[in-house]
């Protein structure tokens, strides 16, 4: 059953995002938070992996964490949705299960 996955590690430093993408069931949502938000940028060593995964998974990114890190929203991969904390709560409520990839 589709669920919510959160990823809080940079895809350039750890394999959390890669493992999440490999193991998440089709139709699931992936929310990038904290250092995980670096995975939302276009034109990086990780962006192909995310773009391919978007065929099967919905990607979200937490706006406050983007701002803190100076990642402008206009450099994000097309199709990733920026959400705020209440959006985070809404996603958590909409999904029966949440898995945090640390």
């Amino acid at each position: 059953m589709p669920m919510l996955h959160t990823v809080n590690k940079s895809p350039f430093e750890r394999g959390a995002l890669e493992s999440c993408i490999r193991l998440a069931i089709k139709g699931s949502s992936v929310l990038l938070i904290e250092d995980g938000v670096y995975g939302a940028s276009r034109g990086t060593a990780a962006s192909n992996m995310v773009e391919n995964a978007m065929k099967d998974l919905d990607f979200y990114v937490l706006g406050s964490d983007l701002k803190a890190r100076g990642v402008d929203e206009n450099r994000l991969i097309d199709g990733i949705t920026v959400i705020d904390y209440s959006g985070f709560v809404k996603l958590a409520v909409e999904n029966d299960k949440v898995q945090a990839w640390l």
Binding site: S64, D65, K67, A68, R69, G70, D72
Partner: peptide, 10 residues
């Protein structure tokens, strides 16, 4: 050293 960092919301 990325520019434009703003941690207000955090």
């Amino acid at each position: 050293i990325a520019k434009g960092q703003d941690t207000t919301e955090l």
